[in-house]
Amino acid sequence: MQEPTLLILTALADEPRHGYGLIQEIEAISAGRYRMRTGTLYGALDRLLSQQLIAVEREEVVDGRARRFYTLTGQGRAALAAEAERLRSVAAEAERRLHVLRPGLQGGAA
């Protein structure tokens, strides 16, 4: 799963969001590292809709602006959970290996 997909699904995991809300949430999740452009966002949303990983929950006009709220489908939630599990197991393995001290490495490089 590429990073933009992971970030979008993660941003939708807790509550439905509209397009600009997603851009803001993705920036927050990635600690400012990833600023998704509008064109990239809608390209990804179209794909995720056609893959049925997300769905449109509702449409409304907020402050004179048309908003469409996207939500995770059951399939999208499962895909995100599987990716989170994969990342968790990789991270756990990395942690485990970092704590295995080889004799030659104890006490630094000297």
Binding site: G19, Y20, A66
Partner: peptide, 13 residues
Amino acid sequence: ANGAETAATYADA
């Protein structure tokens, strides 16, 4: 189908 919403997001961005 999507112009109004895309325009709103673009305007905010």
